[in-house]
Amino acid sequence: MYIPDIQSCIKGNRQAQQQFFDQFKGKMFALCQRYARNREDAEDILQEGFVRVFRDLHQYNGSGPLEGWVRRVFVHAALQHLQKKKKQPEVVELFDYDAPDDVDPFVMDEPPAKQMTQMLQRLPDGFRTVFNLHVLEGYSHPEIAEILGISVGTSKSQLLRAKAYFKKLLENSLQS
């Protein structure tokens, strides 16, 4: 099992940093794709995330799993990337957005996670962000509200709407 040489990475050893990169690139790229609108944005987030990881690695105190720390850095990088794209993650009001009735079918020979990633990318930014933070990262609504600068009520309503939207996409995909 690979044990990252954190000290060498902090010192800027490119070889150690590349090993670190190879260790986490797959999982983190999957995470980035869930937050991004498309693959190109996900690549940008991945790049920015790793730059931040290597820049701030000295702040990791070893109290928790390294992967969890790296994951948090990437989530924040993804959120900031979305904010750059649009000053604030899009908050879609309940009455503003309805789930589509016709959805393109997905190719079923792909792994379910890949399909679901594509489905997530079809969600509006606000839906996708809240869904990711709550369902996959385990943040509570007050935490999400604080991170995104929205109210707790808005966070809850965004999540409900995102789930409805996501279910619709999933059902359409399964039916086809």
Partner: peptide, 17 residues
Amino acid sequence: SFDEYEDLPPDNMWARV
């Protein structure tokens, strides 16, 4: 579904980083 799921980035990603 997302547990342990990985997706590989492009080959040039390390160069970009």
